[in-house]
Design a protein around this nucleic acid. Structure first.
Lengths: 236, 236
DNA sequence: TGACTTCTGGTCACACTGACTATAAGATGG
DNA sequence: CCATCTTATAGTCAGTGTGACCAGAAGTCA
């Protein structure tokens, strides 16, 4: 293959990997926890200075999911508890000045860790439902990722990715409520979760709370996270 | 950007688009209709002579979905009734001799038209559940596409893509049965479909059948094909 | 000790679904 | 013209899952 041929191939489309990173954070406005995500400031044209999803080109030997996890680590210093491919965006006009095809992943990080995440002039967390105008088609991408998260949290068992090793059902319920943006009946939630077999009673209880002490549960690893047949998420 | 820089970028990964094309065909073995898909014979290394999914590189100005539809048209001469992105496969080792990232789509074509599809030495239809060893990771890709089709046919309204403009509920049921590989109760199927509002009674009936003439239905365009929030499929 | 809060177990009504029964409406063969 | 056959279509019934709601349990705190 000649240099020209390679150049022509290259000029067709560049390949990039981006990640939509979700964490739960207490919202000064809402009182309760809501969904937040970190964005990075563009340091070059196009969209210089505007906020965008973390990501970049795909190195030669790196897995797609690996590149997504790296973008996450490099911007936030965190490790994803859940990571799954979202969609590949390839509209020829989505990037002014050279076509870019973006393979986008979405990730969930533990809320406790998320509080320690790096944040500076060029990395900032935003409430997922109130984003500024982002570079490229990133607003649309986040919207789709949000839809996917909200849909999937209802039939899958990904909510625990926001929590630590052990947790109360009230904490797990708070995650669902934050994601779905609606209140859930505690008793019905308990019934549903318990019958799903996704959590295991540790036998421990929380002490010191000014009411009946809740049981502590653990995630049940023996139950499969996704339906059989589905591609395994990169992490989860 | 220098030529070297461009070359390095290019050498990282080539971009390709492939399509898993499903149609229903009468199966000589099974008697009833089953799922079939067209494959093309590789005309060069690697995997020279082996069967593979239709596809190829991504031209400069072409939409991803456009490239998928073109692969479909060029191999079968058909137009997809349904076309949706499946997944992007990017394992660095999935293609011997140069990394290839493949954006894969899946498509449904009308069974009547599928019977007229091109077939020659280098294009042949295979039963989806009994494929030969394919090039690259294409067996795995088809398996995932099959899983997605079978999952989606249960909650979405894509089955009509295998049928023409008007159809009986028995025909629609036959599609579901062929995809899901199990018999469905006619009365219950009717109840479910009618209450879903996805079909409209045309008032016409089939004549000349040696039994009670079935009503003819039409697809209800006013009901959305996918859930709100989901990305629109390219066609559907 | 009583008030307060959340945890947790339970009931009830309703919607949905699979299994099944029964009737409708044509063609076909005697 | 009638009996028969086949599929279409309507309806019933029981079991299951879920939202709404009620009530006791079990701690802390004043």
């Amino acid at each position: 293959m000649t240099v020209e041929a390679r150049m022509n191939t290259q000029l067709e489309a560049a390949l990039a990997v981006s990640t939509v990173i979700f964490a739960l954070r207490p919202d000064p406005e809402a009182g309760l926890s809501t969904l937040w995500l970190p964005l990075v400031r563009r340091t070059r044209e196009p969209y210089l200075g505007q906020w965008a999803l973390p990501g970049g080109g795909l190195p030669a030997d790196e897995e797609l999911a690996g590149a997504a996890a790296r973008a996450l680590r490099e911007t936030t210093g965190l490790t994803p508890k859940y990571l799954e491919q979202l969609y590949t965006f390839g509209d020829p006009a989505r990037s002014p000045g050279g076509r870019v095809v973006s393979v986008v992943y979405w990730a969930l990080v533990e809320s406790g860790e998320a509080a320690l995440a790096v944040e500076d002039e060029n990395v900032r967390w935003f409430p997922a439902d109130h984003l500024p105008p982002l570079a490229f088609d990133h607003n649309r991408i986040v919207e789709y990722a949000l839809w996917r998260l909200r849909t999937k949290v209802e039939y899958s068992r990904i909510a625990h990715a926001f929590l630590g090793e052990i947790f109360t059902l009230a904490q797990l319920r708070a995650v669902h409520e934050a994601v779905l943006q609606k209140a859930l009946d505690p008793a019905n939630f308990r019934r549903t979760i318990e019958s799903s077999g996704t959590v295991v009673d540790t036998g421990q209880r929380v002490a010191g709370v000014p009411h009946r002490p809740p049981r502590l549960y653990r995630y049940n690893d023996s139950v499969h996270a996704t339906a059989p047949g589905a591609l395994e998420p990169a992490i989860g």
